[in-house]
Design a binder for these strands. Structure first.
Lengths: 161, 161
DNA sequence: TTTACTGCAAATATTTTGCAATATC
DNA sequence: GATATTGCAAAATATTTGCAGTAAA
């Protein structure tokens, strides 16, 4: 968990990871930073397979075990988060406490669009939950994207597969 | 996808599934209803393994393939949703459009608590997202539960594993 | 009666584990 | 130099697929 100091300043991730590793007495291996960077630099949510192969494609040699290990560690550290979108594949995405974004997930085609938090949400938390210390939140809005919404209109009923 | 009529009335799930199957020209098999019931009646989010074994424990014979098939179908139908909590296991939970609830996820011990939406959130959507037809949303608040929050206070730094 | 769906078993894919080699501290 | 961490290969799990048999409609 990042401390409150770290959160309010929102240090670069590499530093946040470094700090976490120091506090925990863990080692700063290149693999850990490379995987972190990869997740933070990818525009979409990535699954383990894609992450692994795209690292190799970048010329960075890692083993699958290390990828799995590191994902666990980064979650522990509060730097990434896993997400299920409904297709059974677990994906991972960065956590940012400032510049928060939300997700519009199309329940029909599965497309995910990110939108800036400020564009959508007003005063979200009106009451702090009792006996719970909130750190960040994640909002997923499910519905139909414009394309699928149009399709739905045309072919009502009997949409044989 | 449930139609708008269905949503506003919030019919019993069994009926909503029945309707979906009719509209799609699919069959009303006992397995589909049994799996639906199981998910809707379980207090926590369930993973595939637990779902499968607990159905057998109830004396209901299903195959794993059917469980997987059905989960996909129920997601398609907009009756359940998959969730990733950070431990790599994909879980499933019911979707309710009325009586909405949110999730307090402890980033330390992983405990998930459900809270009534109205207890936490004020006017959430201030603007409808452009070219997107929202159907329901899912809010996860990550942070520390009271137990873990207390622990954290005591043992700052050097929490060797 | 037709054929969508189930269950089974086998094929894939995904994740975990044990251990020797390596690199961080 | 001590040992946490990596990579590899093998083991354990989880998921998908093909197909014959079953049961909804």
């Amino acid at each position: 968990m990042p401390t409150n100091d770290e959160k309010s300043k929102e240090l670069p991730v590499r530093l946040r990871l470094a700090r976490y590793l120091e506090n925990q007495g863990k080692r700063k291996t290149p693999e850990r930073f490379a995987i972190l960077e990869k997740i933070y630099s990818s525009s979409t949510h990535v699954d383990v397979g894609t992450l692994y192969t795209s690292m190799l494609a970048d010329g960075f040699r890692v083993s699958r075990s290390t990828v799995y290990n590191t994902l666990g560690l980064l979650i522990e550290a509060g730097l990434i988060r896993s997400v299920a979108l409904g297709d059974g594949i677990t994906r991972y995405e960065r956590i940012t406490t400032v510049n928060n974004h939300h997700h519009l997930v199309c329940t029909h085609c599965g497309k995910v669009k990110e939108v800036k938090a400020t564009e959508l949400v007003g005063d979200m938390l009106v009451k702090k939950p009792r006996s719970f210390e909130p750190s960040y939140y994640s909002l997923y809005i499910y519905g139909l994207c414009s394309r699928c919404s149009r399709k739905e209109h045309n072919s009502k009923k009997k949409t044989k597969k």
